[in-house]
């Protein structure tokens, strides 16, 4: 038996290495493209979204699917005060809002998917997921030199789709308004509701969408609040629940 086991060892080692490589691919963090990318490259194979099924948290599924799309800028990571990196922080916000500590979306009965790709891939994944509501998660900037922390604005900005001819997504607007009210009430600056006909994740999702600029990362009070996401990410679940009527 021992000799046979030894004879099988090289094969097992090879399998182990292959398995390790596959695992490394599977757990690639959802934070690619530090230095930017182009969506012309299909470089998201092997980068996996995270799914949070409410049943895994002892909750009944309430019938709604939520797609959270944390910032993955095509042009690379964006930075703010004190070494803040938007692309990293917003992934953490998304994971916390999806299944953080019990007062999150999954524990509220929502089936949640956190996108790990660029916005165009995230939209495709969201549309194929059968998403009921899509939320892009970002932090904002008003100045070129974010790390200098000399921002000119503060507060939550919540965007919804409004076409150039004036048509508004009613559910997108209602969701954005709840995000403004619930997340904005917790942030240090004054919140505001905004519209855009151009932002990709507002105009191409099948589901009604909101684009949350949670706070300004080039303004010190905003950046401090952003990195303390454990204290406020629950408000995203609160906003969704309020918008959908606590299903």
């Amino acid at each position: 038996m021992k000799r046979r086991a030894l004879a099988q060892a090289p094969g097992k080692i090879v399998l182990g290495i292959l398995g390790g490589l596959l695992l490394a691919l599977a757990v690639q963090p959802a934070i690619a493209h530090q230095y930017g990318s182009s969506s012309s490259y299909d470089d998201h194979l092997g980068i996996y979204d995270s799914l949070y099924w409410p049943g895994n948290y002892g909750q009944a599924y309430n019938g709604y699917r939520i797609f959270l799309s944390p910032a993955h800028h095509w042009s690379g990571w964006k930075h703010g005060c004190s070494g803040y990196t938007e692309d990293l922080n917003m992934v953490a916000v998304a994971q916390e809002a999806a299944a953080g500590a019990g007062y999150d979306l999954a524990h509220r009965g929502y089936y949640v998917r956190v996108g790990a790709a660029d916005p165009d891939d995230n939209v495709r994944r969201s549309n194929s997921f059968g998403t009921d509501r899509h939320i892009a998660l970002h932090s904002n900037g008003s100045t070129n030199n974010g790390p200098a922390c000399q921002g000119k604005a503060g507060g939550t900005r919540s965007f919804y789709y409004r076409s150039s001819s004036g048509w508004e997504s009613p559910n997108g607007k209602a969701l954005a308004e709840q995000l403004r009210l619930r997340v904005g009430a917790g942030s240090p600056g004054a919140p505001d509701l905004k519209s855009s006909s151009r932002l990709y994740e507002l105009r191409t999702t099948s589901a009604p969408a909101a684009y949350l600029e949670a706070e300004f990362h080039d303004w010190a009070p905003g950046e401090t609040w952003l990195i303390d996401y454990e204290t406020w990410s629950w408000r995203i679940g609160w906003a969704v629940d309020m918008h959908l009527g606590y299903p």
């Binding site: 799914l51 049943g55 500590a101 495709r124 994944r125 997921f129």
Partner: peptide, 14 residues
């Protein structure tokens, strides 16, 4: 395009 991994259900409580 649709890659996803189920999060383990036996994660320790946060």
């Amino acid at each position: 395009l649709v890659d996803a991994r189920e999060m383990p259900s036996d994660l320790p409580p946060v």
